[in-house]
Simulated scan of single mutants.
Amino acid sequence: MSNWRTSSFSQGAENCVEVGRTSDAGAAVRDTKDRAGGHFTATAPQWQNFIAALKTGRFDR
């Protein structure tokens, strides 16, 4: 896994995650404060569905 990125919205925040691309165009996500703690992966369709749900406010409280 390479090319980990932290969102520009995370500057100064304490609850940040990093996202990286997988070889099959999916994504991997890990905790910025515990990079050695592992990561989870999503396939490209799973990641696209997740991002679409975020954009439509599905997880808003």
Rank of each mutant, 00 (worst) to 15 (best):
A42T: 03
H39C: 02
K55W: 02
R5A: 08
R21E: 15
C16D: 10
R5W: 02
G37C: 04
T6F: 00
A28W: 09
M1V: 13
L54Y: 12
A36N: 04
A53G: 15
G20M: 06
T41H: 05
Q48M: 03
T41R: 13
A53K: 15
Q46A: 13
G26Q: 07
R30C: 06
P45G: 08
A52M: 04
R61L: 06
Q11H: 07
S10R: 01
E14V: 07
A36C: 06
F50C: 05
V19Q: 02
S2L: 14
S8V: 12
M1Y: 09
E18M: 08
A28N: 09
S7V: 04
V29W: 10
A53M: 12
D31C: 09
N15H: 10
Q11C: 01
W47Q: 03
R21G: 13
G37M: 02
A27I: 05
T6S: 01
L54G: 13
W47F: 11
F50I: 08
G12D: 05
H39V: 00
F59Q: 01
K33M: 01
Q48E: 11
H39P: 02
A13D: 15
M1I: 12
P45R: 07
C16T: 08
T32L: 00
R58P: 03
R61W: 03
M1R: 11
S8N: 10
P45Y: 10
N15Y: 04
R21W: 07
T22F: 11
T6K: 00
D60W: 01
P45A: 12
A28I: 05
D24S: 10
Q11T: 00
A52V: 12
M1C: 05
A25M: 15
N3S: 13
R35P: 04
A28C: 07
E18R: 03
F59G: 01
T6P: 00
R21L: 11
A36M: 03
A36H: 04
N49I: 13
A13S: 13
R35Y: 07
A28Q: 14
A44H: 11
Q46I: 07
A52E: 09
D24Y: 04
A42F: 12
F50G: 06
V29R: 14
N49D: 13
A36F: 01
F50R: 10
T32Q: 00
A52C: 03
S2D: 15
T22I: 07
S23L: 14
A44K: 14
S10G: 03
T56A: 15
H39M: 03
V19E: 01
V17H: 08
P45W: 12
N3Q: 12
V29L: 15
N3W: 03
W4E: 06
A42E: 05
G37E: 07
R35L: 05
A25K: 15
N49M: 11
A27N: 06
T32H: 00
D34M: 00
A52P: 02
S7D: 06
G57I: 03
G38F: 06
D24I: 00
S7F: 04
A13N: 13
K55L: 07
F59W: 03
D34W: 02
E14W: 06
T32K: 00
Q11V: 00
D60N: 12
V29I: 14
G38N: 04
V17R: 07
R21M: 11
A52Q: 09
A42W: 06
Q11S: 08
T56L: 15
F50Q: 09
A53V: 15
Q46T: 12
H39Y: 14
C16P: 03
S7E: 08
